[in-house]
Design a protein around this nucleic acid. Structure first.
Lengths: 147, 147
DNA sequence: CGGGTTTTGACAGGTACTTGTCAAACTGCC
DNA sequence: GGCAGTTTGACAAGTACCTGTCAAAACCCG
């Protein structure tokens, strides 16, 4: 019978906490994006595309999601008039997603709010810890991905 | 114009990492639960209820989710014959969810696999880091919940 | 050039979660 | 006891992801 070792138990605790925090972050993201007429997911996609037009597959890779997930969000953005597809000379299949002026305006608004929010929260947390935690999580991510 | 402070930027990085790791953990959970005929979500609910029968609202509170989310999973578990509802003397509306023998068997199987997996992963990560990360995340969770 | 492999967007269908609404059951208080 | 307020499960509808499948376009190589 394999039982949980001590490190194993600590690890299990970490998992629960990651889940919890992730849920709270999703909610926070929607809270930040909502007043600008966006959702958390739309904001994230718009932010990627704001650096320059990208194909759906491109955005998916950048975000660590599937093409399908991004496609759905992108379609929503276009329908809402916040982004548009442009023909791609280099690949006739893969049109480029780009923010419309309205999309850019909404994005600027969210980014303002997000900066304030992040600064505020960062100030309330042990400064030294942040970097270390991020590093450990990144390491964990690599291990989970099978190296 | 509010810009991101340095700590603010580190904080933003942390958010991205939490998201990524969460996604990987979800996949890992499904991988562990799948061979036993469960999904990640069903496993989690079954695990809570294994400590003793609970109402849907109870389970939801324990997991930090909404009643509706838990209800959906619970319904699935019952339909699959892995859990059952029992009448509740103390509240006629809220029946108690409890694992069936088959549910318990499946749960034991997943727990075995999970223990092995967690021990293995914990061994590959800096031992000291785990606890600190969990602590910081817990703190972050509290702050995100408005104290 | 031509043919096999890879990449891409689209489509179908499924899971896990959310919010909003409702009526019935419980609870607290006068 | 009775009534206001709360809690509960059910139902409806929506968001954000996923996998699997497909055909067209692009790419690589002999």
């Amino acid at each position: 019978m394999t039982a949980l070792s001590d490190p194993g138990r600590e690890f299990t605790d970490l998992l629960a906490e990651v889940s919890r925090v992730h849920g709270l972050l999703l909610a926070a993201g929607d809270g930040l994006a909502g007043p600008a007429g966006l959702t958390g997911a739309r904001w994230q996609v718009l932010a990627v595309v704001d650096h320059g037009p990208r194909t759906i597959a491109d955005v998916a890779r950048a975000m660590g999601l599937t093409r399908q997930a991004v496609r759905q969000t992108a379609t929503g953005l276009v329908r809402a008039g916040l982004a548009e597809f442009r023909d791609n000379v280099r690949d006739r299949r893969a049109r480029l997603l780009a923010p419309t002026p309205r999309g850019r305006t909404a994005l600027r608004e969210v980014e303002l709010r997000q900066a304030e929010w992040a600064n505020d929260l960062a100030a309330r947390l042990p400064a030294t810890g942040l970097r270390a935690v991020t590093g450990t999580l990144r390491h964990l991510g690599e291990v989970l991905q099978g190296r």
